[in-house]
Design a binder for these strands. Structure first.
Lengths: 187, 187
DNA sequence: GTCTATAGTTGGATAGAC
DNA sequence: GTCTATCCAACTATAGAC
């Protein structure tokens, strides 16, 4: 792993715990057993660190959405695949995902604009899948915005929950979460 | 409204937008058309502002939960009432709720401990209601932790969504959200 | 109750030696 | 590539005049 990668990984951990604004370059350097000045041989500044962490994981979602849209399964199956996608990314990029969720508003300039665009496109694509599911009679004919809000609220929170889970519990989650989100908890 | 109330209200707005660490006492003073030094005639410091904002709304949840537990309705009805409680608080305390959700980790000392205790108790009470619902056959016999996680993820995100809604849309939400969360979206 | 002035600390970032 | 030293801006909070 390159030194830059190590810095990004350590920064993501610290940002997750304390938030971007509360972590100083000295904190980050100390966590890496070096001095703050040395960080600048690998990155241009604090903002570049934040932008790299967030945009990398944002592009993971975009790529995943593209793959789901390519196949020609039912809307229900696509929704299931998206739920699995969120679980996978939460497992692989736990810290970066936390940073994306809590510190995106501290992005500045072009990276901020890019993040906003990627998020808007992702939500629009998700909405289209839900709408086609309603048309096909797979989902109840209720407010699409409310459906999307409920799904994304839970999917965006998975990273808070996943690190505490064992491998078998995660396997259970991959089965139960689509069930709970799509068919409800009432018996 | 007292000067202290005005400060708390303005601070909650700013903390919601930019986060606790990124808002300075000068920012807060400027938003109130005064100088930073003058703030200290009304509050002891930045931490007191944060603690007051968060603990006030945290106690709203505790009080609401106590009221729900007192009645002897079904677990399903209690869960419905809790969903309505979250919507009501999200409407009345939108900014404070955002601060509670995103900046609780910046609390220090006794207020931090109190918040953690209140949250733990609330989640435990909620879990008990879900468990009694499973026992009574009202809910599916699935993992209670997963059920609770899903419900709280959505309920904790309502504040992000509510300010954009009209009065009629909020009325719809009070009907559709319990339905979506408890009976699912599949037709 | 608000102000000016300022203390004392800490922030991101750079210069230049090794 | 890492260090020491340092710049300078910005931070929370206090002192004391009005």
């Amino acid at each position: 792993m390159t030194r830059k990668r190590q810095i990004l990984k350590t920064a993501a951990q610290l940002f997750k715990e304390r938030g971007y604004s509360a972590v100083t370059m000295r904190d980050l350097a100390a966590a890496m057993d070096m001095k703050a000045a040395s960080l600048y041989n690998h990155i241009s500044g604090k903002q570049e660190i934040l932008a790299t962490i967030i945009l990398e994981v944002a592009h993971e979602f975009t790529t995943g959405m593209d793959m789901v849209e390519e196949n020609d399964k039912s809307a229900f199956a696509k929704a299931e695949q998206l739920i699995i996608l969120h679980i996978k990314i939460a497992l692989e990029y736990t810290d970066a995902l936390a940073v994306l969720n809590t510190d995106w508003m501290h992005l500045e300039g072009a990276p901020y604009q890019e993040y906003i665009t990627l998020r808007k496109e992702y939500e629009l694509d998700f909405k289209k899948i839900l709408e086609s599911g309603i048309k096909a009679g797979e989902f109840k004919a209720m407010n699409v915005e409310t459906m999307l809000f409920n799904l994304l609220s839970t999917l965006r929170s998975i990273y808070l929950w996943i690190p505490k889970k064992s491998a078998t519990e995660v396997a259970d989650l991959k089965k139960e979460l689509p069930q709970i989100l799509l068919t409800g908890i009432s018996s």
